[in-house]
Design a binder for these strands. Sequence first.
DNA 1: CGTTGTGTTGAGTGCCCTCAAAAGATGTGG
DNA 2: CCACATCTTTTGAGGGCACTCAACACAACG
Lengths: 255, 255
Amino acid sequence: MSGRAIELFQEQSGVNHLALRLPPSVEAEALDLLIDRMGGRLSYAPKQRIFHEDDPAECLYKVSSGLVCTSKLLSDGRRQIGGFYLPGDYFGLGCSGAHTLSAEAITNAKVRIIKKSVLMAVANRDDIERQLLWLMTRELAHLQERVLLLIKNAQERVGEFILEMEKRTKVGNAIQLPMKRQDIADYLGLTIETVCRVLTSLESCAAIEIQTLQRVVLRSSSALRTAMEDRSSIPHKNAARKRSDRHPHSVRRDV
Amino acid sequence: MSGRAIELFQEQSGVNHLALRLPPSVEAEALDLLIDRMGGRLSYAPKQRIFHEDDPAECLYKVSSGLVCTSKLLSDGRRQIGGFYLPGDYFGLGCSGAHTLSAEAITNAKVRIIKKSVLMAVANRDDIERQLLWLMTRELAHLQERVLLLIKNAQERVGEFILEMEKRTKVGNAIQLPMKRQDIADYLGLTIETVCRVLTSLESCAAIEIQTLQRVVLRSSSALRTAMEDRSSIPHKNAARKRSDRHPHSVRRDV
DNA sequence: CGTTGTGTTGAGTGCCCTCAAAAGATGTGG
DNA sequence: CCACATCTTTTGAGGGCACTCAACACAACG
């Protein structure tokens, strides 16, 4: 249980130990090695389920190839997609006890899987722990971004999605969209029709080019930005004017 | 750096060590003791800022009294509230490097503050680490709930907010709403007018009673549930019928 | 008791959803 | 390789929910 009182004041490692301020270069090297060597290999066909949302969350997963998503089915029939996971991405984190989301393959996918208990038994615990904490922190930051996304309008949601996928899947200058339009819609909290319409409008304003269903090229990022901010050339929504009215002295009370 | 190879195979503690499956009774006892005894005391007036969203995230905060919220100002002037924190709640977690949100007091508030480095230097690290991980896991679960909330309609959002606040702030049978209507709106991604209208309609259908601006009583939880599910008696939105059309064989491919 | 901030209510509009149908993509058997 | 069936995507028409704008009621404070 204890037996590490001797280390109590080793400040250097102690400070970093918290893993809430991590050297960015660390990433998950040891974890990668471990799961690649010791983790089980599993293959999934499109739409095949990897785990269900009530299954005990005792494993850690990493995508080797293909595309995986987590999702949740609501009582009214709507589906919300928690995230898309590309090769190299980890999923199944951040759940104590049971998963809160299901996971399924979207394309053919190969997945590495390792039990958390095995992970802890085999590896240097602190390294692994720090890396897991880092992964959780990233997941949390990503979720916060998503919350911000969901209060925006359709053009901004789709636009930010394009930009996110550009960072993650660009080969040459082609952005890959391996998921269905319906998956994008469920990820962005929109309908498939709205996603289609926005994509079409983005193409017609020369921001992007839809080469195939799953292949998009970013033609003009400035045009994309413009289209995202454009509210049909009407200064609608809660504009800055209104906001300043609402918090007229949010500044002057600062210490 | 290392020197802990001897502990490598201490299975028992190693398994729990991951803190991703925690004994629910643990909560944050040691952490509570530590921050209450060693943490600094700070007092804030309404609307006073506690930290800014770009400040380095090197401290952990706990509300002693009053109400605190985290928030982010968007470029278009909209504000998104990350969360409300009541006495006993921790905030400032889950950020590596810099905060992603600002924090400010809503009412008069007393806050305990402790540096993460001090925390790690003074305490048994594993306990503290486990408790921090547990707090982060809760934060993550809460964020996932929020994402699900934001794709729902106004009545469901406000209704779920009432139910959440009932769990957290009920004294007798009165629910306390210490924040402004605008704060609720910014938390739910709605406008203040919509929040008002929904609250009024919930009162007129006998689901709740608005005693004062900041004091609400839940009259009939069943009426509330009905009002939340009610889409003006029209089976709109993506109903189950349409959803089953969209994924007609999501079952048959399971292993 | 005026002033300022906050909350409520009303009228009108637009964004996105629903419903519907056509067009395109994908897969299978002949 | 083509015909056919199925699934997916696109496009169109129309409507509702939540937003914008505006005015009034209420509360807090000096």
